[in-house]
Structure formats: C-alpha cells, structure tokens
Design a protein around this nucleic acid. Structure first.
Lengths: 234, 234
DNA sequence: CATGTTTTCGCTCCTTAGGCGAAAACCTCG
DNA sequence: CGAGGTTTTCGCCTAAGGAGCGAAAACATG
C-alpha cells in the first residue's frame, strides 16, 4: 500500500537463477566463481540487480543474456523469494530466485569464471545460493513427474534412450524408456518424427526419433488427481 | 551480489496475502476497502511493508496478525513476486504474494473495513490484487489435487459430507464423498475418530467423524506420477 | 411401523503406471 | 554370408488408484 506516512524502508533487490541442464549423464547447474569479497572464490548463481524499469522476469532474462551466453533458455520460472535479513553481508538485499532450463543438446558459451557443476557435487557456494539450487532441483523433480516440463531439457528431436537418460539424470533414479514413452504418448505430449537414427558401431536396432508435440511444448501444471467430473461422453 | 560500484537501485517491498476460506459453501477471500487514494474504495489484500529486520514469511504473518485477527492460519506459502514497474502508482513497489488458508470452522474477528468475498464474485479490486487472488485460487486447486493441503481448509474433526463440501467449494466442481474418503484414506491422510455425530432433524444415519492424521497435517508436495522404482518387496 | 433421509459399504469398471520377455533390426567378425 | 552380439521396439500381463452405483445401515418423524 503506497502510503507515505512515515518513511517506508527501501531495500536492494537482486534476481538469481539456477540454470539447470543435463550434461554427461548428470544434472548440472551453472555457477561462477566470485573474484571479490565477500565470499571470494566461492561459487554463486548468475543474476544481478533489479533495475527500476523492469520486472523480475525481464531482469533475469536480461542478466542471463549479459553475463553468460544462454540464449536457448527453454524455460524460466519463479522459484521463491529469499529474504532473510542476513542472507548477504552488508545492506539488506532481497533475492527473487528462478529456475532456468537448457536443453541438453546445446553447449552455451560461458565466461572463463563460469562452470557447470553437477548438483550432486556442488563446490562451496556463496551466501544462500546452495539453498536456491536445492529448491530448483526439487521443483524440477516434482514438475517432471506431474507436468510436461521435460521438453525444456530435451533436444528438438531425440530417441527414447536419450530421453530416458535425461529424465533419469534429472530425477535421480532410473526410468525405463518403455514406460516413459507410454506415459508421455498417452498424454499426447510425444510424437514420432518418422525418422530413425543409424545404430552405433556396436550395432543394434535403429532408434526411432521423437519430438514433443506443440501441446507438449508449453508448461501446463494442469494435472488433477481428483479429476473433474467425467465429462459424460454421451 | 553486493557490490557498491555505482549506486544500486533501492525499492520498496510489500507483502500481500490472499487468505482463503470456505464459508457458506463457497471459497472466499479476505479483502479490505481502501479509504485513501490511490484506488479509493477499491478492495485490496491484507499486508503491508516489509521491515528491515524480518523476512517475508515473518512479515506476512505479523501483518495478518496486526491488521486482521487471523491467528488460526493453518497454512501459509509463497505464491510469487509481482514486480511490474507500474503495478502501483508512485514509487516502485515490489510485492511478495502469499496464499493463506483458514479452516472453515472458525470465524476470525476482522476490522470493520474488512470483508470476506466469494472468489467467484470479486468486487473491484485495487492494483494487481485480482491477479494475486487468481493465482492463489489456482495454486489451491492444483495442490488440493496432488497434495494433502486440504487439511488446512478443514476443521479438526469433520464428517465426510462436510469435507466433501469444502473440497467441492474450493475445487469448483462436485466431488463425491465416497471417492474423497477412499483417496484420502488410501494415502494414509484420513482417519476415523471413532465418534459419530447425531443426525439432523430430518433423520438419517449418523455420520462418522474423521480427522487428518499427523502425517496429513503438514504439506507434502511429494507426489510422483512417474514413481521411483518399486522398492522391491522381497 | 411405514416412510423418508442421510450415510456407509460393497461391488464393479476403467484408466494409467509398471514389468518382462520375445521379436525386430541392425552391427561385426570369422 | 551366417552366427553371435547389441540395442530398440512391441505385445501381453499385472497392479494400483480413481470413479460410479446401488444396496444396506442407521437414524428421524408421524
């Protein structure tokens, strides 16, 4: 409520993103190494200050574009606000945290101080950034199960084995490609392209290529377990 | 990143809550009528400025305690940050929005300028508060289906008919008490207390009383559709 | 005690997740 | 070029959870 009774407290606001990608069979997050105090040499999430003329979504997209070359962000969503008064030393700074997803087929160019780190083997992180990564990881895992967010981790076309590996890496447990295909197809999210890949040098049956349908390409958190009444088909 | 290179922009931060409760068979939200410009006489969400010594969760809880007497908030969770530069007139103000849930059995005392409004018949709201209410409603509906958040809307003990009405009102469509009981019981969230109610003046079989189990009393968004491998029983 | 009302329970059906093994389709090597 | 090895695909089955429906149970009233 914009009242100017006394003096309203003003504070800094930053946006941070845990950008996740499956690479080398594991889920990894993009971090850069701090060169200055505080928390020198600790690893922190990309992001930066919120400008006065932009909302947080614009801001995180701009910052990611500026600091690291991540144009192919397939999905970005808010995670939560991190606002503990002492979350960073110095003047109060509130953070809007985001989850970003990059399809596994591209390898964006990143500055020299920036690296991908497996989320299961994080280096010492700065401030509360590890908590943010954990939150991102948890959100991704949940949504992989009950939404179609998987498309944001997968390349435009893929074999079921490839998709299986992506899902397995992100979920942290092995999923079978048989079942994965069934589930995604049944929901109308998956479609064969018609093409097949040539088998590896070890032989094996050539794999069919799939891609997500248009319907599968935007995130829907529509997924009821207590379903709406059965729409009475006649 | 706390760098003092140039001058980091400072901005105001408020916390707002869409407090929802099922009353009179419909899902309602707590709003108060603005007495001052801007947006006089429009209805807005309870909340207020974030203080420098508290995080947003503390802040919203404090503000709700101060402005309206809602001590029995069964559940509070972050919704999202609303940060459009022009979301309120005047100096920049970012909002952290929350969802709050009040069990249907209590009728908290509220100030005279404050009213409950059915979410399906909102009055003209101030600023972007309607969007926040919509978001809250959507979040509630989703989570009712795939989590056990329902306990926060229900009284400590209830009949299945009562719970059915609560769920129906919140979800916006009729659910059967038979199925509701089955689903919740199977998940180990529901338990009969052993007691029964006396039937109304119209007669009828006395209804058994239920309550949520301890396990059902904290929100778990654990709900995988792609389930972890079957834990190999034997 | 007949009638009306509300709740509860048992049975069945359908959809979806998951498992498993056989068949299909390719490779390489002798 | 056929045997053996590899990888993918497909069909068939099971299990589990959600949903529907009607009968039975348990009360009230006149």
């Amino acid at each position: 409520m914009p009242d100017a009774t006394t003096e309203p407290p003003l504070l800094g606001h930053e946006v941070l993103a845990a950008v996740l990608q499956v690479r080398d069979e594991s889920l990894q997050v993009l971090l850069w190494e701090r060169a200055r105090e505080p928390d020198v040499h600790r690893w922190s999430l990309p992001g930066g200050r919120l400008r006065l003329d932009e909302d947080v979504e614009h801001s995180i997209r701009r910052q990611l574009k500026e600091k690291v070359d991540v144009r192919q962000l397939a999905h970005v969503e808010q995670l939560a606000v991190f606002s503990a008064p002492d979350r960073v030393p110095g003047p109060r700074l509130v953070a809007s945290a985001f989850l970003g997803l990059v399809p596994s087929d591209n390898d964006p160019e990143v500055p020299p101080d920036t690296r991908w780190h497996p989320v299961d083997a994080l280096p010492t992180t700065a401030f509360d950034h590890e908590a943010i990564v954990r939150r991102a990881q948890h959100r991704l895992r949940s949504k992989l199960s009950y939404t179609n967010i998987g498309f944001a981790l997968a390349p435009p076309a893929f074999t079921m084995s490839e998709l299986r590996e992506i899902y397995s890496a992100a979920l942290g447990y092995t999923v079978s490609s048989t079942n994965l295909q069934r589930v995604l197809s049944r929901r109308g999210l998956l479609e064969p392209t018609g093409e097949t890949t040539k088998p590896g040098r070890a032989g094996g049956r050539p794999a069919a290529l799939f891609h997500f349908t248009v319907r599968g390409m935007q995130v829907t958190d529509e997924f009821a377990v207590l379903r709406p009444p059965a729409a009475k088909t006649r």
